[in-house]
Amino acid sequence: MKFFDYARATELSEAIGEFAKPIAGGTNLLDLMKLEVETPSRLMDINHIGLNEISPHGDGLRIGALVRNADCAADLRVRRDYPLLARAILAGASPQLRNRATTGGNLCQRTRCTYFMRLGTRCNKREPGSGCDAIGGVNRDHAIFGATEHCIATYPGDMAVALAALDASVQIEGIDGSRQVSLRDFHRLPDGDPHLDNVLTGGEIITSVKLPAPVGGKQIYRKIRDRASYAFALVSVAAIVTLDQGRITRADLAFGGVAHKPWHDPAVGRALIGNEPSDQLFSEAADLLVNQAKGQGGNDFKIPLLRRSLIAVLREATGIGGNDVRNL
């Protein structure tokens, strides 16, 4: 770890507009600082500035940026009204990490691309202009949507995938005031400048995440990974599905582990709405989803995996298939 100075903010104003790197839970930042992928010269500890409450906001909820992931998932309102969010958080990392990781920090979590995390390799995200060793390398964890010749990394988090399905928004404070960004627009695609993970500019800080009014429905977060727990997603599916009189009336979907941001393709949801659930319908929607997907070799399996995972989730959400034991 490079040497840095440490400062401890006691109110939000001290943390805004600072060149110092804010540290909250630190679970990702310190990990990367130890690898010297992140090398801030000053750390601003923002754990003592408040922003750690969940409060009603209109018909929805406002989750303070410093609410710990574990507290968010355990919050009774979140569990009752936004089970998708609770489930996505609980699918991520480990209990120990969720006890430290915060709402804002989790959104700023950086990629787990092995080349990004290892000095001495070419990585446009870590060192703009150096190239991308993941292309043509070991890339089973990498993106199948929105990748460019500059970067094929994925955003690795779970919580944000649920927030994308929930159409949450991110409240941001900077020296020029505050602004609100849809969660779906908060993270960005790599384009030509993959060193930028999201739309935050220097000195800006996330202050909260706002959840719209609860929408009910069946809410599912399905995460496929290489071991049963404590692993990043190969792919994940966040789904909110509502049925009315046998027809799908709502289908809000988002996908993790497949792009530089939580992947949201409104056309897939639209293809489902108004229809009766069936395997054929779900297969068509899944085909629509992966239509534009492109593998890098090592991650080609993600395309059929995502397709089939979506079908499984839609079946579960609409009660097709059931859970009975059948002897065939």
Binding site: V138, R140, S229
Partner: peptide
């Protein structure tokens, strides 16, 4: 779950930590 990965271009191990190399966890 367990497999070491190597980049065949330069021989570096691509999962040289316990997040990348999956020893079974309790849930497995």
């Amino acid at each position: 779950t367990e497999e070491l990965g190597f980049d065949l271009r330069d021989g570096q191990m691509t999962n040289h930590d316990l997040a990348g190399y999956h020893v079974p966890c309790h849930a497995d």
